[in-house]
Simulated scan of single mutants.
Amino acid sequence: MTTDFGRTTLPYCSFVGVGEKRPRVGVGVGTDVLDLTAAAARFVPDRAGLFADGTLDRFLAAGADAWHEVRDALTAWVDDPSARAFLVPAAEVDLVLPFTVADYVDFYASEQHATNVGRLFRPDGEALPSAWKHLPMGYHGRAGTVVVSGTPVTRPSGQSRAASGHIDVGPSARLDLEAEIGFVVGVPSTLGRPVDVDRFEQHVFGICVVNDWSARDLQAFEYVPLGPFLAKSFATSVSPWIVPLAALSGARVEPPARDPHPPTYLQDEDPWGLDLELVVRINDTIVSRPPFASMYWTPAQMLAHLTANGASVRTGDLYASGTVSGPADDQVGSLLELSRNGAEPVKLDDGSCRTFLLDGDEVTISATAAAPGGGHIALGEVTGNVIARQP
Rank of each mutant, 00 (worst) to 15 (best):
V25W: 08
L36R: 05
R42H: 13
L36W: 05
D57W: 11
G17Q: 07
R24Q: 09
A39C: 10
D53A: 14
P45Y: 12
G54K: 02
D46T: 15
A41P: 03
T9E: 01
V29G: 00
R58A: 15
K21G: 13
F15L: 00
K21I: 12
T37N: 00
L36C: 11
F51N: 01
G54E: 00
F43G: 03
R58T: 13
D32W: 05
D46V: 15
V27M: 02
K21L: 10
G49K: 12
K21W: 13
G54S: 02
A41H: 07
G28C: 01
T9N: 00
D53F: 08
T55W: 12
V25Q: 08
T9Q: 04
R22Q: 06
A39P: 12
G19S: 08
A52F: 04
V29H: 08
R42G: 04
C13R: 00
L10Q: 02
F43A: 01
L36Y: 04
V27S: 02
G26H: 10
G28I: 05
G19R: 12
L34E: 01
L34W: 03
R42D: 08
T37I: 06
K21Q: 14
G30S: 05
E20I: 00
Y12G: 01
F51M: 06
V29W: 05
P23A: 02
D57L: 06
R58V: 13
V29I: 11
V25I: 10
E20M: 05
C13N: 02
F15W: 13
V33I: 15
T9A: 07
P11T: 08
D57Q: 07
F43N: 04
G49I: 12
T9I: 13
V25G: 02
V44Y: 09
A40Q: 09
E20A: 14
G26A: 05
F51C: 05
P11E: 00
A38P: 03
L10P: 09
G54P: 08
A52I: 09
V16T: 15
G54D: 02
A39W: 03
P45E: 08
A52L: 06
F51Y: 02
V25D: 07
K21R: 15
R22G: 04
R22V: 10
A48K: 04
P23N: 09
V18E: 12
K21H: 15
V33R: 01
F51G: 02
V16I: 15
G26K: 11
V16M: 05
R22W: 07
R22L: 07
S14G: 10
D57I: 13
